[in-house]
Simulated scan of single mutants.
Amino acid sequence: MARIKPQALLQQSKRKKGPSHISGTTSIFYTLIFVVIMFFLFATYSHWSTRTTFQPESYISVSEDENTIVESKKSDIPEYAVVITSKGSIIVELFKESAPEVVDEFIDLCQKGHFKGMFFHQVIKHYVIQAGHKGPGATEDWNLLGKKYASMRHEAFMLGTSKGKYFNKGFDLFITTAPIPDLNEKLIVFGRVIKGEDIVQEIEEVDTDEHYQPKSSIGILDVVLRQMV
């Protein structure tokens, strides 16, 4: 039996180990590729899952914030006005629901100081007291300009403005001193006196001339807006 030389044995050993070494490397290589692919798929899934989750929530959050702002603006509208006259203060509740545009205009004019220094230039007992910067008569200058605003019944101590002047970019103030339903087509009612009826009656009782103009000046010093009284 022939003996195998040591060199031949060494070469055979190398050839046997060779395939085993290549197989291990290949396995590691494919394992790394698999791990990378799985990581990429997991990252993609996480990204889209997170985006889908947060989009509706952020939309709802914005909507809720907008609603909060709208509600806040509504609640910021003053509900009362204090008409400070030379005879005393008259507190008026504003009708924000029934005459919103008129109330908004009134509030804007108050903030601009429109009513400061305005005189009660027409006083008709058991009828109305009228304050304004100008205007001749208490009744003859009223214009019946349609029914854009359906004024409520004119009970005593209601605050209103004449339709004629309002639609012509003017704004005067009337406070009724008796129930006067025939004024429904001439006045826009946007508030009512809740305190200071005695001041209204005191103004009503001043001496006037034949044109219903007070013989002594009675004016509005200021109008203060309030949320509560």
Rank of each mutant, 00 (worst) to 15 (best):
Q122S: 13
Q122Y: 01
V123Q: 08
V123H: 06
V123R: 06
V123F: 06
V123L: 06
I124N: 08
I124A: 12
H126I: 00
H126P: 01
H126G: 04
H126S: 15
H126V: 01
Y127G: 11
Y127Q: 14
Y127W: 15
V128Y: 03
V128D: 03
I129S: 07
I129V: 09
Q130E: 11
Q130K: 12
Q130W: 04
A131Y: 05
A131S: 11
A131D: 06
A131L: 03
G132L: 09
H133Y: 11
H133I: 09
K134M: 13
K134P: 00
K134R: 11
G135T: 04
G135R: 10
G135H: 10
P136I: 01
P136C: 00
P136Q: 12
G137S: 15
G137T: 07
G137C: 08
G137W: 11
A138H: 14
A138Q: 10
A138C: 10
A138P: 15
A138R: 11
A138I: 08
T139N: 13
T139R: 15
T139P: 00
T139K: 14
E140A: 14
E140M: 13
E140R: 13
E140H: 10
E140I: 07
E140L: 12
D141T: 04
D141P: 00
D141F: 00
D141Y: 08
D141K: 07
D141L: 00
W142H: 13
W142I: 08
N143C: 01
N143L: 10
N143W: 04
L144P: 01
L144Y: 14
L144F: 10
L144C: 03
L144A: 11
L145T: 08
L145R: 05
G146A: 02
G146I: 01
G146Y: 02
K147P: 01
K147L: 06
K147S: 12
K147F: 01
K148L: 06
K148T: 05
K148F: 09
K148S: 07
Y149E: 12
Y149I: 07
Y149K: 03
Y149H: 11
Y149W: 09
A150V: 04
A150M: 06
A150I: 05
A150H: 11
A150C: 02
S151C: 11
S151E: 13
M152F: 00
M152I: 10
R153Q: 13
H154P: 01
H154W: 03
A156I: 02
A156R: 09
A156C: 02
A156T: 02
F157S: 05
F157T: 02
M158K: 15
M158R: 14
M158C: 12
L159Q: 06
G160K: 03
G160E: 06
G160V: 01
G160P: 03
T161P: 05
S162A: 13
S162K: 03
S162M: 02
K163E: 08
K163V: 04
K163L: 02
G164Q: 06
G164V: 00
G164L: 00
G164W: 02
G164T: 00
K165T: 01
K165R: 13
Y166H: 13
Y166V: 03
Y166K: 08
Y166D: 10
